[in-house]
Design a protein around this nucleic acid. Sequence first.
DNA 1: ATAGGGCTTCCAGCAACTGGAAGCTCAAGG
DNA 2: CCTTGAGCTTCCAGTTGCTGGAAGCCCTAT
Lengths: 129, 129
Amino acid sequence: MNIGEVSERSGLPPKTIRYYEDINLVRPLRSDNGYRSFRESDIHKLAFLGRARALGFSIEDCRTLMDLYEDETRESAQVKAVAKEHLAEIDNKIAQLKSMRETLSHLVEACQGDHRPDCPILKDLSRGV
Amino acid sequence: MNIGEVSERSGLPPKTIRYYEDINLVRPLRSDNGYRSFRESDIHKLAFLGRARALGFSIEDCRTLMDLYEDETRESAQVKAVAKEHLAEIDNKIAQLKSMRETLSHLVEACQGDHRPDCPILKDLSRGV
DNA sequence: ATAGGGCTTCCAGCAACTGGAAGCTCAAGG
DNA sequence: CCTTGAGCTTCCAGTTGCTGGAAGCCCTAT
């Protein structure tokens, strides 16, 4: 199967699929004409990767998860550890964004947003050095 | 004032300060020995930038905000518009992260995390292609 | 034969720095 | 006076995860 069809079936852009091959996340075969030739198992892998990425896992995490997936002797504790760590990172990011949101929304509310130059947002950003 | 002291006073790493000069966010003078020579106004600017970045504004937003800050004829509506747009982006990111968090936390809870290979996390990631 | 679409590779660029190498400057100590 | 070490300089490369574009081959249809 050529990359175009694989792209449609996996939901990943061709560029991304080529990139994943570059970094050895998938290893499609090659046809005589030089085209990549994907097996069903490659598509399966790519879809797996797409879903892991959609959950925010880093590429390296994805690699680890794929390896665990293909390792029959894995322990679910290993998978859970990766996921829990990622979950903690997500929580950190959410907390950070919420704190930004908090500050920023107050400032936005305090700003008249009219034709005059006075602005609490700029005032806050430029507060004492 | 040399970059080291400016770094301490502004809270930005020297590398970052040099980078901000590269992209013309600050324009320190130069001493005869070639060292950057910062004025108080430069430190003020850098602190401003640091706070804007801490609120998650992009570098380009920071540039815009700095320009507005220095423009006496600005209208606060311009500032507010930039801030509101950024706030919306933050809200989007939070929503996205929350949705990931939702899915992921369910999966993590469902995973035994023991020595056996069976794992709902991997099962979900590899669900029907 | 030619046009088009799909495929290939490779190079560059995005954001916002960060690390490291090579080398100059300056102040202090022996 | 010389050396040592910290601090400064520039420049290049790498980070993350792609994405865009150029140049060119392949295949099918007209």
